[in-house]
Amino acid sequence: MAIPLFLKVLKDQRRGFLGWSIGLVAIVSIQLSVFPTVRSSAEGLATFLKNYPEALQKIFRMEDYTSGPGYLSTELFSFMLPLIFIAVGTGWGANATAQEEERRTADLLLTLPISRPRILLTKIVSGITAQIVLVLILFLTLFIGIRFVDISLPVSKILAGSASGALLGVTFHAVATLFGSIFGKKSVALGGAIALAIAGFLFYSLAPLVHTFDRVLGINPFQWALGKNPLKGGLDFGYATLSILTSIIIYGASVSVLRSRDISN
């Protein structure tokens, strides 16, 4: 790893990352602050949910909405938190090399006496570091926050829930990095990774309703990260391993592509 580059990436991204972190803490805090009202209206909500279209209940995994873990799963882990992890991941992935090529800084960076794989691996490590820090921020926010609203969750489940976001973030960080390595354009890297993320989310959300989508759930990163409801069941070891291995393969492909192609100017 090239330490000066690693530190430079962290420094360059600090403002954007700070913004996403504040957003994450704010969203979690706001949702937690609403929970006492939800719990006190459990009876009314139960009636409301009973009349809620079954299809929507399935899409938003709304079972057990009035329990602490059920509420957090529905309100945070089904959409908002994955979105933040994926946004950070795709952004950092698209910046890895595509931005350097577009801004022509790649001509200086890639003519230093450091191999292209080492440069890209440094960028990958910095992106993974950002995901780990986000996990820590989310973990601490939940760990502290649930105490204020009297939700009981074991530390292992909070950690599993937080880590599930990073599994998605890292996967789509890898995808954006790969598109950037192939095409050298930030818009393609970002757009391609986000399009895949949206497709994955739709397939995952509609799987309870569409048999075809349900059949391919086993290859969907959203299923790997969220399918077993990490706040209740913890992370599925098999799925987590599959997610990590997939990311490693995509990162490997990124390095291989960048290593052997012309750098555009």
């Binding site: 006496p113 191999s115 100017n265």
Partner: peptide, 23 residues
């Protein structure tokens, strides 16, 4: 080659339109 990098210690390269880290 595009794989060799050690020799670049001995090279000073100024690109035609050098992209700099403007921030």
């Amino acid at each position: 080659t595009i794989y060799s990098h050690e020799m670049r210690k001995e090279i000073g390269y100024l690109p035609g339109s050098p992209g700099l880290y403007e921030n």
